[in-house]
Amino acid sequence: MTGAFSILEFPLDTNGKEMEPPVVYLESATGAIYLDKSHEAAAYNAIWADMAGRTLNESRSKSFIQQVAEEYSRA
């Protein structure tokens, strides 16, 4: 489990190569941290891929939200 994070990816050069490596941005109550090592970015990319794989598609999300709204309106 991890808190909120952003993966910052930068444009590729004209040859399709990275101009800058990805950076992970973490924000906390006392400041921010930038993780720029490749293994750190890989770990957060894996977390992101895992979360994305667990999400509902647009149609199922709408149905779920409608179902929850109907349940709350009956309460």
Rank of each mutant, 00 (worst) to 15 (best):
M1F: 05
M1T: 10
M1A: 13
M1R: 10
T2S: 14
T2E: 14
T2P: 06
G3Q: 13
G3E: 14
G3H: 12
A4F: 08
F5G: 07
S6I: 09
S6R: 13
I7F: 04
L8C: 08
L8D: 09
E9C: 04
E9R: 15
E9M: 02
F10Q: 02
F10N: 01
P11V: 05
P11K: 07
L12H: 04
D13G: 02
T14K: 13
T14Q: 14
G16E: 01
G16M: 00
K17H: 09
E18Q: 08
E18N: 01
M19R: 07
E20M: 10
E20A: 04
E20V: 04
P21V: 01
P21K: 10
P21T: 03
P21H: 06
V23A: 06
V23E: 10
V24W: 08
Y25H: 11
Y25K: 10
Y25T: 01
Y25G: 02
L26E: 11
L26N: 09
L26V: 08
L26Y: 09
S28R: 15
T30W: 04
I33W: 10
I33T: 11
I33M: 10
Y34H: 11
L35F: 04
L35E: 06
D36L: 07
K37P: 00
K37F: 03
K37R: 15
H39A: 05
H39W: 05
E40N: 03
E40G: 02
A41H: 00
A41K: 00
A41M: 00
A41N: 00
A42M: 08
A42Q: 14
A42R: 13
A43W: 05
A43M: 09
A43R: 10
Y44D: 01
N45K: 14
N45G: 02
A46K: 11
A46M: 05
I47P: 00
I47D: 01
W48H: 12
A49F: 00
A49E: 13
D50F: 03
D50T: 10
D50L: 06
M51D: 05
G53M: 06
G53H: 06
G53P: 07
R54H: 03
L56D: 06
N57W: 02
E58T: 08
E58M: 03
E58I: 04
S59W: 03
S59M: 05
R60K: 14
S61M: 15
K62V: 07
S63V: 05
S63M: 10
S63N: 12
F64Y: 09
F64K: 10
I65S: 08
I65P: 01
Q66M: 09
Q66S: 12
Q66I: 07
Q66N: 12
Q67W: 12
Q67Y: 13
Q67M: 13
V68M: 12
V68Y: 07
E70G: 04
E70S: 13
E71N: 15
Y72R: 15
Y72A: 13
Y72P: 01
Y72G: 03
Y72M: 14
R74Y: 02
R74M: 07
A75Y: 14
A75C: 08
